[in-house]
Simulated scan of single mutants.
Amino acid sequence: MTTDPLTLNNTALAGRHVRLEPFDESLREPVRAALDCDPDAWRLFAINGQGADFDAFWRALNGQVAQGGWIAYAIRHAATGAIVGTTSFLNIKPTRQTVEIGGTFIHPDARATLVNAEAKYLMLAHAFAAGMRRVELLTDARNARSQAAIAKLGAVREGVLRRERVTWTGHVRDSVLFAVTDLDWPDVRARLERRLGAAGPA
């Protein structure tokens, strides 16, 4: 299989509950509206996508996309058609066959649904179909909700990267590292498919 990052790029990923749409200018204002909430959650992110910081956030993500190491998606809720958040592939490393999933913000109204689970399922399936060997997920050590959600996917908690980055608030962050490898993927996929198939509409 190829691991050229172009096999991951500019591809919408569609499921029963969500559609992941690569950023383009037509999505700027719907994404802005979806992200302009929950300041307590944003304080746990590395960069801020809320309020007056949104335009810099949008430029930064699109700049990373232009360099080829990042793919940013808007998350569209299939039932309503509304944009309800964002998520990204980042640190795409084709020679190492690794990629990270991160930058995921889900609007509070969509958090108690299958939106995040299916978004992660679609991204994991896309990454492994493209030949990736390892998919990493990092989150702030203070963010218990994020850690629980990642663990619920079936990702393996591998440890804590101490003082791993400085966030937009100036906080020196410890990051918890989770991963799903190609060897883990069959069990993780089955687990997610059972979860997605057993529940009703998102």
Score class of each variant (00 low, 15 high):
residue 1 M to V: 09
residue 2 T to N: 12
residue 4 D to K: 08
residue 4 D to A: 11
residue 5 P to V: 07
residue 5 P to T: 11
residue 8 L to E: 02
residue 8 L to N: 01
residue 9 N to Q: 15
residue 14 A to V: 11
residue 16 R to N: 09
residue 16 R to D: 08
residue 18 V to G: 01
residue 19 R to V: 04
residue 20 L to R: 07
residue 22 P to R: 11
residue 23 F to K: 06
residue 23 F to H: 12
residue 27 L to D: 02
residue 28 R to T: 05
residue 29 E to G: 04
residue 31 V to N: 05
residue 32 R to W: 10
residue 34 A to E: 09
residue 36 D to L: 07
residue 39 P to D: 15
residue 42 W to N: 03
residue 45 F to W: 15
residue 47 I to D: 08
residue 48 N to P: 00
residue 49 G to H: 10
residue 50 Q to D: 05
residue 51 G to K: 05
residue 51 G to Q: 10
residue 52 A to E: 15
residue 53 D to M: 15
residue 57 F to H: 15
residue 58 W to N: 03
residue 58 W to V: 01
residue 60 A to H: 12
residue 62 N to M: 09
residue 62 N to R: 15
residue 63 G to Q: 08
residue 63 G to N: 13
residue 67 Q to D: 12
residue 69 G to M: 08
residue 73 Y to C: 06
residue 73 Y to N: 06
residue 75 I to R: 07
residue 75 I to N: 02
residue 75 I to S: 03
residue 75 I to V: 13
residue 80 T to W: 12
residue 81 G to V: 10
residue 88 S to T: 10
residue 93 K to D: 12
residue 93 K to P: 03
residue 93 K to F: 07
residue 96 R to E: 12
residue 97 Q to M: 07
residue 101 I to L: 05
residue 101 I to V: 12
residue 102 G to L: 03
residue 108 P to Q: 06
residue 109 D to T: 14
residue 116 N to A: 06
residue 116 N to L: 08
residue 118 E to C: 00
residue 118 E to A: 08
residue 120 K to R: 12
residue 120 K to Y: 05
residue 121 Y to Q: 00
residue 124 L to E: 00
residue 126 H to C: 01
residue 128 F to L: 01
residue 129 A to S: 14
residue 131 G to S: 03
residue 133 R to A: 11
residue 134 R to M: 02
residue 136 E to D: 09
residue 138 L to N: 07
residue 142 R to N: 09
residue 142 R to I: 05
residue 142 R to W: 11
residue 144 A to F: 10
residue 152 K to R: 15
residue 153 L to N: 06
residue 154 G to I: 10
residue 155 A to T: 02
residue 156 V to N: 07
residue 157 R to A: 14
residue 157 R to T: 04
residue 160 V to D: 10
residue 161 L to I: 12
residue 161 L to V: 07
residue 162 R to M: 11
residue 163 R to P: 10
residue 165 R to G: 04
residue 165 R to W: 13
residue 166 V to C: 01
residue 167 T to F: 15
residue 168 W to D: 04
residue 173 R to M: 09
residue 174 D to M: 12
residue 181 T to K: 01
residue 182 D to W: 14
residue 185 W to G: 01
residue 186 P to V: 00
residue 192 L to W: 03
residue 193 E to T: 12
residue 194 R to T: 13
residue 197 G to N: 10
residue 198 A to F: 04
residue 198 A to D: 08
residue 199 A to Q: 15
residue 200 G to F: 13
residue 201 P to M: 08
